[in-house]
Amino acid sequence: MNNKGFQVRVEGSDKVITCRENEPLLIAMERQGYARIPVGCRKGGCGVCKIRVTTGEFEVGKMSVKHVSEKERNENFSLACKTFPKSDLKFSLIKLKGKAINIGALGIDRKN
């Protein structure tokens, strides 16, 4: 990490988000007004911020296994609010099954 923090990108977007050391990815995105990710509880309980990290290193905090199973965790699925980047990284947004998220209202593009 340089003094600018880690550089984070959503797959398919050029926008660079800067994530500070020990800052949850979701909070970094919120702080920088990045509207492509849904912000729910910010605490790993609701699952709306589910992502899959495609490249880069990260650590996770406690989160509901209901939303990210052990198996998924090994496949780099995570919740953005409990994801702490440890390098520059890229990720994609995951559409939750069975959840009626009003995509239009949030300005989210949830294509993986």
Binding site: C41, S64, A100, I101
Partner: peptide, 9 residues
């Protein structure tokens, strides 16, 4: 707000 209607545990 959308969060109020969709975010539950």
């Amino acid at each position: 707000n959308d969060r109020f209607m969709t975010v539950v545990t």
